[in-house]
Design a protein around this nucleic acid. Structure first.
Length: 769
RNA sequence: UGCCCGGUCGUCUAAUGGCAGGACAGCGGCCUUUGAAGCCGUACGUGGAGGUUCGAAUCCUCCCCGGGCAACCA
């Protein structure tokens, strides 16, 4: 699918964090079978560029690992969903070039299974029927800073819950009478875990299940369990769902512990000058700011298709922007590049004059027509094909290609100046004709017969312009599009305004243009480059009415225009790094009295500094561990190793129950302090000690670790490395001193990490001097 | 203000203790019968302050900044 040229593998392919997770899952054996992803839209709106990113991500990943990607409609809310959106979604995914095969699923098909799972939850006392009102539930949930309070119904018996839930399912109760809640923890710092509602009563007709179900599961219940039912291995979603992950895991642990899906979150796409919230897109459609979901200015997939973007360009764009966890706002230029790049090799060239100016070629006889052969493709595109372009006495050129008083770098027509007609001859402007109002109405030019296109160039002119015969050209409507919003981030609004106030009133302009005859008939291409104007695509909607209207997909890159009317680029000021008043912080600030005293004592007794002392003091057993180890090893080194090396290797649990004795730890520190082990080796040993509980001495023996400090031995390694990389030595001597790290790395690798780095470094510096 | 997640060229994204790399945008040049495309070159970055280390974007501490979370939506 996506072209991955195997030849470039040498250049170390970069992997995004999801790929890295999958890679390591396969190595570790967490996933032994197929990689199964899923794309899970709710059918309540038209898919947009943000969906395209998720579609490409999920399907490409499945492709890459030869697994599969399910299409699942998360249709658990009957009020907003519709078959129309299901159809749109499927169409757009296919159009993008992806295929889910037989794996088309609906959460609404799982209603029976999900209901049974809810019953299992009730039976294990992990869910209960709550009969509080919605307002009470909300009020009792607490706030972000205060814990919630338990529902008075939280302790209903399993039997009562079962019978109430059965009643809910049977339709015995009105909307809102009861809900089913997971019994988790009303005091959880994560609001989602405060007994989330998992089923609600909703007497509503579902677009697929009709009135079969009076109760519907909520996303937080349906989603993880649907993933589990389908055997999804990697469930990808956007960042805002990260707080849902504990709940996801809680439910899966309770009902599908193994094998089980895992959720991973990545940043959603934000694109300059567009909005992608469904609500806002819907508003644009409903308030007629645009011509429907597929208006060519819309960021919907259907809009982009109608505008003339290609599936390849969209996929390429998604590849370019990558996948990561940092919030982002992608520059339009990146999308535009992907589109132009694809279209350049795809669209045959023709000529079309959008704002015409009449030119009379005074030395061409009236009524004569010369058919010029013109290639559809520029010289650097290896495609063939030509058409005939009629040249007549009267032609039309673009208004903007003439300037009565040209600026210095204007390479086009002006009084007395010459320019080449594309595929034709060089002409000279002899006379400018104006009306009473002083407006230019036509130009009189003479044509130089000796300069026909393709002939040996007798002379050259700076400019080449497009043109169309005034008598043979065909009128046609073209629509030019600009960005829908005037500002990069339309969501960034002033008090009392909405994103709508940022709409660009000139986002579409319509022209009656004149196109060369070859592109005017019914049976021509639907996509062209109009030379020097941009790429155009036949509007599919108008075509249904038999009308040929050309949408400008995108302009050509135009360095001339940019030079001459600098469009102010979006100014995005980075936070003006508020130079912080260099506050000398008291490391003991905020400590309780006991820790405070302890920290002071540790610092005074061992001289390790207040900051480290405070770090140790807040955990009494760590402080004790430190003191114990300090008996047999230098206390500063013990503190450093404890804080900077040991702690990050341990889990919260591991820190509470340290995996070895203080004395053993001290031995290790001592091995390093005495130069027996390099720091790298000591870290290696530490990791082994945590993993196996083995003593440092036995690990050192087993792995045969010993630091090499012998100069002559190290010198020969250094020399070998330098000899092996003469180019880098050269570069180093040329000033790229960062390469010292490269050489160090080479020597360290050569010695399997046992070289004494200080010695190596001084040797390297000596040899490279 | 509680919890969670983030912060690398203008933008997007790599580098998982060892050369801060790529792409887009920019700038300069070459080429050109599209002021396109192509080719060559160039500038630009690790939020801040300390610490550990021979060596830190990466590990530790504190600070700063951004985002998310209190629907019976997804």
């Amino acid at each position: 699918m996506t072209s991955s040229d195997s030849g470039s593998l040498a250049k170390r392919e970069s992997r995004n964090f999801i790929q890295q997770i999958i890679d390591s899952d396969r190595v570790s054996g967490r996933v032994s079978g197929e990689i199964i992803t899923r794309f899970p839209p709710e059918p309540n709106g038209y898919p947009h560029i943000g969906h395209a990113k998720a579609i490409c991500l999920n399907f490409s990943l499945a492709d890459e690992y030869q697994g599969r990607c399910n299409l699942r409609f998360d249709d658990t809310n009957p009020e907003t969903e519709d078959m129309e959106y299901v159809r749109a979604m499927k169409l757009d995914i296919n159009w993008l070039g992806f295929d889910w095969g037989v794996h088309e699923y609906y959460a609404s098909d799982y209603f029976e299974q999900l209901y049974d799972l809810a019953i299992r939850l009730i039976k294990t006392d992990k869910a209960y029927v709550d009969s509080q009102t919605g307002e009470d539930i909300r009020a009792n949930r607490g706030t972000v800073t205060e814990a919630g309070t338990n529902s008075p119904f939280r302790n209903r018996s399993v039997e009562e819950n079962l019978s109430l839930f059965a009643g809910m399912r049977a339709g015995d109760f009105p909307n809102g009478a009861h809900v089913l809640r997971a019994k988790i923890d009303m005091a959880s710092p994560n609001m989602l875990m405060r007994d989330p509602v998992v089923y609600r009563i909703k007497h509503a007709s579902h677009y697929r299940r009709g009135n079969e179900w009076p109760i519907y599961p909520l996303y937080d219940f349906a989603h993880p369990l649907s993933d589990a039912i389908e055997g999804i291995t990697h469930s990808l979603c956007t960042l805002e769902f990260d707080v849902h992950r504990p709940l996801y895991d809680w439910l899966v642990d309770a009902l599908f512990p193994n094998p089980r899906p895992h959720q991973y979150e990545s940043a959603r796409l934000n694109l300059d000058y567009t909005v992608t919230s469904k609500r806002k897109l819907l508003q644009l459609v409903k308030e007629n700011h645009v011509d429907g979901w597929d208006d060519p200015r819309m960021p919907t997939i259907s809009g982009m298709r109608r505008r003339g973007y290609t599936p390849e360009s969209l996929r390429r764009f998604c590849e370019m922007i990558g996948v990561a966890k940092a919030d982002n706002r992608v520059d339009m230029a990146m999308l535009e590049f992907a589109v132009r790049d694809d279209l350049n090799a795809l669209a045959p060239r023709v000529m079309c004059v959008i704002e015409p100016l009449r030119v009379v070629l005074t030395n061409v006889p009236a009524g004569s027509t010369e058919n010029l052969e013109a290639s559809y493709w520029p010289h650097d595109i290896p495609k063939e094909g030509t058409r005939l372009v009629p040249l007549t006495r009267e032609i039309l050129i673009e208004k903007s290609d003439f300037m009565e008083e040209p600026s210095k770098k204007f390479h086009r027509l002006s009084p007395g100046a010459e320019v080449r007609l594309r595929y034709g001859y060089i002409i000279r402007c002899n006379e400018v004709i104006k009306n009473e109002a002083g407006e230019i109405t036509e130009l009189h030019c003479s044509l130089d017969r000796d300069t026909k296109s393709g002939a040996t160039p007798s002379r050259r002119v700076k400019g080449t312009i497009h043109w169309v015969s005034a008598t043979e050209g065909v009128p046609v409507e073209v629509r030019l599009y600009d960005r829908l919003f005037r500002v990069a981030n339309p969501d960034d609004v002033e008090e009392g305004q909405t994103f709508v106030s940022h709409l660009n009133p000139d986002s579409m302009t319509v022209f009656q243009a004149i196109i060369e005859p070859s592109a005017a008939s019914k049976d021509t291409q639907d996509r062209y480059q109009f030379e020097r104007q941009g790429f155009f695509y036949l509007d599919s909607k108008e075509l249904e009415n038999g009308k040929r209207v050309w949408n400008r997909t995108i302009t050509l890159r135009d360095t001339w225009e940019k030079d001459n009317q600098p469009v102010p680029q979006p100014v995005r000021i980075k936070e003006p790094a508020p130079s912080p008043p260099i506050a000398v912080r008291d490391p003991l600030e905020g400590l309780d009295t006991a820790s405070f005293d302890r920290a002071k004592q540790l610092d005074e007794q061992y001289g390790i500094g207040l900051e480290d002392a405070a770090l140790l003091a807040v955990r009494p057993h760590i402080a004790g561990f430190f003191e114990e180890a300090s008996k047999t090893a230098p206390s500063t080194a013990v503190a450093n190793w404890l804080i900077n090396e040991l702690r990050p290797l341990l889990t919260e649990e591991g820190i509470r129950v340290l995996p070895f004795s203080a004395a053993e730890f001290a031995k290790l520190v001592e091995l390093h302090a005495s130069d027996t082990l390099s720091s790298r080796q000591a870290k290696e040993v530490l990791i082994e000690m945590i993993a196996t509980g083995e003593s440092s001495g036995s690990i050192v023996d087993r792995l045969g670790l010993k630091q090499i400090s012998d100069e002559s031995q190290l010198l020969s390694m250094v020399q070998e490395v330098l000899e092996a990389h003469p180019d880098r030595v050269e570069a180093y001597k040329g000033g790229k001193i960062g390469l010292i790290g490269f050489f160090m790395g080479q020597v360290m690798a050569k010695s399997s990490g046992s070289a004494n780095p200080s010695t190596v470094k001084s040797l390297l510096e000596r040899e490279l001097a």
